[in-house]
Design a protein around this nucleic acid. Sequence first.
DNA 1: CTGAAAGCGCTTACAG
DNA 2: CTGAAAGCGCTTACAG
Lengths: 340, 340
Amino acid sequence: MSSKITIHDVARQSGVSIKTVSRVLNREPNVKADTRDRVQAAVAALHYRPNISARSLAGSKAYLIGVFFDNPSPGYITDVQLGAIARCREEGYHLIVEPIDSTAADLEAQIAPMLATLRMDGVILTAPVCDHPVVLAALEREGVPYVRISPGGELDRSASVGMDDRLAAYEMTKHLIGLGHSDIGFIMGHPDHGASRARHQGFMAAMADSGLTVRSERVEQGYFSFRSGFEAAERLLGGEDRPTAIFASNDDMALGVMAVANRLRLNVPETLSVAGFDDTPGAKVVWPQLTTVRQPISAMAGAAADMLLNGVTWEEGDAPPSKLLDFELVIRESTGPAAT
Amino acid sequence: MSSKITIHDVARQSGVSIKTVSRVLNREPNVKADTRDRVQAAVAALHYRPNISARSLAGSKAYLIGVFFDNPSPGYITDVQLGAIARCREEGYHLIVEPIDSTAADLEAQIAPMLATLRMDGVILTAPVCDHPVVLAALEREGVPYVRISPGGELDRSASVGMDDRLAAYEMTKHLIGLGHSDIGFIMGHPDHGASRARHQGFMAAMADSGLTVRSERVEQGYFSFRSGFEAAERLLGGEDRPTAIFASNDDMALGVMAVANRLRLNVPETLSVAGFDDTPGAKVVWPQLTTVRQPISAMAGAAADMLLNGVTWEEGDAPPSKLLDFELVIRESTGPAAT
DNA sequence: CTGAAAGCGCTTACAG
DNA sequence: CTGAAAGCGCTTACAG
């Protein structure tokens, strides 16, 4: 055990009061340069680090940011965490991760106590938790600021960060159409994720704008999992009458499509083009590599943390701050000219 | 903002002192059943939750467990987190995640301040951070207990959790030999990960025990990444003289092997058998699905958290507690009889 | 079985 | 520009 150095040790060593040490630590103004230097020298010499518990008990900050998630893909979770932490570290904040079972009956009883004990400075919410009314209500009741990543609705309820999912899906669909595809299958995402609807809309709009009709049997419901993509693809590709391209609402499902294509000996992209969404690590692992949309996940999480650290506030009646980041189409080998 | 309920409110409501409330909260003995009930009723009625900062400042626990990691696969990180959190929640602890750049020159300066401010009750270490001397030294100097998952050495230095990587690799190799393979390629894992050596040893031992020799050009260095597996496979499969099976030290690299096989039009498993290690989500995503070793990652992390929560201590001179969990061979479609 | 006092290590509000 | 006092909400050590 290292003997614990406190603010009193620093004060003694530098010949000032603990209040002045506190001022230097918190970069408050009105400290003589000379005094500041002496205190900083003592801090360095003693390897002093303020105790986070004492700070948060006495003050108004906890130096803790939370991330709530429910079961999205590991790659997504990890990217969110890395993006948020990078920003938090610059300000001396730490990240608490809380997996949430959003289907639990006693969700309220799970969240509220945790919020009350921890008293975090802010929470970052990912889908589908970011659209869960019970979670949002609990956060608001406890007065914990939160920022949502890619929320599905109620944009005026909180600050948020996202990307234009609709436009990205629109452009990917246009890419396929540009390759000569006119009969394109679409696999929708999980209905609880707001992005699913936006991506579906983008697909439909691009088709309509190109004068193409979408037969209802070309659109399948998926759930963002490999398995759901696999099953949807079996339905889309099972018969003789099949599309020349499939656009899946995320990479995991697109990988399921590739697996079915392999099974049925349909060459990708010669016989079937496949496009995904997210650019997860898996997209580069399949052969041929997947054409997809790169979502700036880390950057979105970093922006969310940024809002929280700077205090997200907005005027009554104004719209809450909302940041839209750029996406990028990543054209790889899984999409090609339509077979004639 | 909800008005904050404190221990004083509970004491007043139930007609006892705050000390007695504290006793009930901490499940200390020597409280009359009737008193306990009254206090618990007040806690429930007021929705009281103890403030974690006050608790940790006054007491000896922080109610915080840390997880340190450096850049392993997202699936691995997520499994570790979920396993640790499940156990922590039962005891009212929370998880702080800290990505560590173990190649950073100022590692010491990154870790030490964090340990001093946070004063966590324990830290879970994953490879390669679990074998980094600077990290271990910092932890020991700050007096923070830690448990390592699958450490590569110095087993007498701390408590640890793991599985028998050597035996698992041995059994997988025996599986291949049992299918008639005698010319087997092996791709080693990242040299900084302790498990890499154990897996390599298991492979070599199984070959030797079966009277098979391993030509040096059949063993390639990998780094646990898809790319390193891809490149190693290009070397192993590039010429006319190639092995009939490849055993990669993890799934990501095995996926790289599959991609090369696809490129070279080598059918798996008819022409080439491929085996991996870890059973990551990706193992079920490729076609054919990957034969691999299931590593109980969540369970290992849960066991590590368990040790920390119960206080890992051991007698001077004794070996620290060490727990070995069971693995499982998962035989899927990527391995088959050797071509004759 | 229960409680009054002290104190954990900081920040806040105030005074000068 | 600086400091003395009070207090954040708990647990510890002690007394009865």
